[in-house]
Design a protein around this nucleic acid. Structure first.
Lengths: 234, 234
DNA sequence: ATATAACCGGTTATCGATAATCGTTGACAA
DNA sequence: TTGTCAACGATTATCGATAACCGGTTATAT
C-alpha cells in the first residue's frame, strides 16, 4: 500500500466521509482501536485524525472517555447566521473592487445552483452556494477573515442545512436570492454590497428559524436573534 | 510525578508559557524529541500538544518537516481588527440586556486597566482589557460568536500588542476608551452599544496601523520583547 | 437494605522502538 | 564552476505493547 500523504490525513478524510454520508451518526462513539483495526493501521494516526476533527468541530472528546460524533443542535445552527452575516457583510465591503473580476464566475455559480435546485440536488446546490460565498470571501483579501469564516465549517453545514430546507420548503428558490449581491458588486458600491451580503445571510437564518419553529412546535425566545426580531415572526 | 490532568495538556501549557515569555521566538523550531527529552516524557504527548497549538495558531507544522513557532506578521495583526470589530459589534448588540448585570464588573475592569496603565504594567492591563471584552462577548449568549472570537486568540495577541503600544505611545490612555461602552450598556440601547464596540475596536486598529507606519514594522512585534519593551529601545 | 470496596472488560494515554522522509554534505562527473 | 546523486544525520510518522483510567458489576461489610 503506497501512501501518498500522511496516514492521519487519509484517516481524517475517510472518517469525514463516513460522517457526512451518515454511516456515523451524531452521538456515535468513535473508538480509536476499532477504527484502527478496521483500517488495518495503528492507533496513533487514528487518534491524530480524531483530534484534528475536534478542531473542525465534527467530533468531541472527553479525556479518558473517548471521541464521539458531535451533535449539531438547533441552537448551534441558528446561532451561526448572525455571526456569518457580520463576517460576510465585512467581506462584501472589502471585496467589491476585486470581485468584479469574478462576476462571471459568480453568475455561473448562481446558474448552477438554479439547475441543481430544479433537479432537487441539494448536495450540488450546496457546493455552488458555498463556492459563491467563498469567492467573495477570498476577494476580500483579508486572510484572517477568510480563516475565521472557514472555521465555521460552513461548507459541511450548508449541505445538511440545504437538504433539510429543500425537503421542507421546496417553494423557495434560494439561488435567485444571490442576484441582489451580484448586482451590488456590479454597482461597485462597498456599502451596498456589504448590506446585501448581510441581508442575504440573515434572511437565510430567518428561514431556517422558521423551519425549526414549524418542525418543533412551540418556539422559545432565542437571544441570538435579539437583533433580528423578524426571525420569530411567521 | 503525580499527574492531575492529561500529560499533553500540561505540555501545551508549558510550551505556551515558553512562547509567551519569549523563550521560544517566532520561527524557532519545536522538535518533538528534544522537548520530550527535556520534559522527561515520551514523544506522543508532545506531538499532541503541538497539534493542539496549531489549531490555536501558535504553531505551524509541515508534514515531515516539523513544527515551528508561528510568525505573527504585521499584516495579520492589522487584518484582525476589522474582523474583531464586526464580531464585537454583534456582541454589543446582543449583550446589552444581560450586560447591565455586569456593569460593576466591567467598570472594575476599566479601573484596574487604568491603574495598570499608570503603573506601566502592560501584562495586567492586557489581562483586564481582555476580561472586559470577554465579559461582553459572554453576555451575548451566542456560543458560536464566543467561540469564533476565541479562535482569534485575542487574549494572547492583546498582551503583545499592548506592550508594544505602551512603549511607543505612552500618551494614550486606552483604559478610558472603554467608558463610552459602559455608558452605552447603561443606556440599554443595542444599536448604540454595538456601535460603540465596533468603533472602539476600529479605533484601536487605526492606532496600531499608525504605530506600524511610524515604526519599522513586523520585527517590532517580536513577542520575545513583549515583557521587556525597553530592550529594543536601544 | 444500603453503602463501600475490590474486580473486570473496554478504552484511552503514554511509552519505547522502528520505518519513512527530509535537508545537507561531499564525492564525482560534465 | 556547476550539477547530479548517494549516503548520512536528524526528525517525523507510525507501530505494537503497556500502564492508567472509566463505568459498571459483584462481593462484602455495616
Amino acid at each position: 500500500m503506497i501512501r501518498r500523504v500522511v496516514l492521519s490525513e487519509q484517516v481524517k478524510e475517510e472518517l469525514l466521509d463516513d460522517i457526512m454520508a451518515g454511516r456515523f451518526k451524531p452521538g456515535d462513539r468513535l473508538v480509536e482501536s476499532q477504527i484502527a483495526k478496521r483500517m488495518g493501521i495503528s492507533q496513533s494516526p487514528v487518534r491524530e485524525a480524531l483530534r484534528d476533527m475536534v478542531a473542525m468541530r465534527f467530533v468531541e472528546v472527553e479525556p479518558h472517555k473517548g471521541a464521539r460524533v458531535r451533535e449539531i443542535d438547533q441552537r448551534e445552527v441558528l446561532e451561526i447566521y448572525p455571526v456569518r452575516a457580520r463576517l460576510e457583510e465585512l467581506a462584501g465591503q472589502l471585496a467589491v473592487e476585486r470581485a468584479v473580476a469574478h462576476l462571471d464566475e459568480l453568475e455561473d455559480a448562481v446558474f448552477r445552483m438554479t439547475k441543481a435546485f430544479e433537479a432537487g440536488d441539494a448536495r450540488t446546490m450546496a457546493r455552488w452556494d458555498v463556492h459563491f460565498h467563498r469567492t467573495i470571501l477570498e476577494a476580500s483579501g483579508n486572510q484572517i477573515l477568510i480563516e475565521t469564516w472557514n472555521s465555521l465549517m460552513i461548507e459541511a453545514r450548508t449541505y445538511v442545512t440545504l437538504s433539510n430546507l429543500m425537503a421542507r420548503r421546496p417553494d423557495l428558490d434560494l439561488a435567485s436570492w444571490h442576484h441582489p449581491i451580484t448586482e451590488a458588486i456590479r454597482s461597485g458600491d462597498p456599502e451596498r454590497c456589504g448590506f446585501e451580503m448581510r441581508k442575504h445571510v440573515e434572511e437565510f437564518g430567518v428561514v431556517m428559524n422558521g423551519v425549526f419553529d414549524a418542525g418543533e412546535g412551540a418556539a422559545e425566545f432565542d437571544p441570538a436573534f435579539a437583533d433580528n426580531p423578524e426571525a420569530k415572526a411567521s
